[in-house]
């Protein structure tokens, strides 16, 4: 099965899921599933730079925070227009990614990891220290982003998030198969060769970094809408670690894999937490097993013998 088919099948299943939940009379599951899809978008955005660019960022949750706070702060000042909120969230994240990327992409490997971590920590502590926006306690939103849709209705919001997920899946496949995507994949494997052929790799990596940050910022705005609340914990560094786990366990460089990874991660978190308060230890064991058994992640097994793009 090609990755597109898997993605399509996943979207269809997700579209039918609310009917199942309605039949079960479990509307709470809808909220959980919405959260999974939002993290799916965030994980997918990280896969663009990790799976295709080979850039291991340990600060990707910072864009969730920037996107979330963009919505929260605009709401704080009484601006509830959804187009403005989501637009600002996306652009602010893109701007932050441009700055962070311009500095961190001059390094690679473990140094890149440390610099992205450092930047995310800076923004994290900034959010903690600004008391007018709630500081450590976070910021409660007065209303959902106003797009003319009733986001207060969990079903409406679910389908809106699903539509966003489907769009970003489509966009990511387009990007990866484009000439830009080919160059990105090529430089992941052999950067010096790409330079010697005539391509300044820094610009391409920075572009990917900005696109990735923008998509993750959008996911942050969705997250703020779901909970009507943002706090610094949204961009805690462990959150960035969770995103890495989702991508790696789901299958790096597969686009749809990280979405499945995000769903599995949150599902395991829920299920294991119902057994024990030490669910983190169990989750760790499951993840070790997953990565050891199939080094290519969950999707690596499903889409085996995958044909090259194009």
């Amino acid at each position: 099965m090609t990755k597109e088919r898997i993605a399509l099948a996943m979207v269809v299943v997700l579209a039918l899921l609310p009917l199942l939940f309605a039949a079960m009379g479990e509307s709470y599951y809808l909220t959980v599933a919405t959260r999974m899809m939002i993290f799916g978008i965030a994980a997918l955005s990280l896969d663009l730079i990790l799976g295709f660019g080979g850039l291991i960022s340990l600060g990707h949750a910072v864009y969730l925070g920037i996107g979330g706070y963009a919505v929260g702060i605009l709401d704080f000042y009484g601006i509830s227009n959804g187009f403005v909120q989501l637009g600002v969230a996306t652009l602010a994240s893109a701007g932050a990614a441009l700055f962070i990327g311009a500095v961190s992409l001059r390094t690679s490997g473990v140094f890149f990891l440390m610099i992205t971590l450092a930047f995310s920590q800076m923004v994290y502590f900034l959010a903690i220290s600004i008391n007018s926006f709630g500081g450590d306690d976070g910021l409660t939103l007065n209303a959902h982003s106003d797009l003319g849709l009733n986001f207060g209705n969990t079903q409406v919001f679910y389908y809106f998030v699903l539509a966003c997920l489907a769009f970003f899946l489509w966009l990511s496949f387009r990007i990866v198969r484009s000439r830009f995507g080919m160059l990105l994949r090529g430089m992941k494997f052999n950067e010096s060769r790409m330079i010697a052929i005539g391509f300044p790799t820094f610009r391409y990596k920075l572009t990917a970094f900005v696109i990735s940050g923008a998509i993750c910022g959008f996911a942050g705005a969705l997250l703020a809408n779901q909970t009507l609340f943002v706090s610094p914990s949204i961009m805690q560094w462990s959150r960035s670690g969770d995103l890495l786990v989702m991508v790696i366990a789901g299958g790096m460089g597969t686009i749809v894999g990280p979405v499945i990874g995000a769903i599995m991660f949150l599902l395991l978190e829920k299920v294991l937490a119902s057994f024990t308060t030490y669910w983190g230890a169990l989750l760790g064991m499951v993840l070790i097993a997953l990565v050891l058994m199939g080094k290519t992640g969950l999707l690596g097994g499903m889409a085996k013998g995958g044909r090259p793009h194009g």
Binding site: R179, M182, L183, R185, G186, K188, F189, N190, R193, M194, A196, I197, G198, F199, P308, H309, G310
Partner: peptide, 22 residues
Amino acid sequence: GLVPEGRQIFPNLSVRENLIAT
């Protein structure tokens, strides 16, 4: 245009992509 020692084909790109990417 350099044809480097050891070819240095991009293994994670298809043949077509190796040709058209650059």
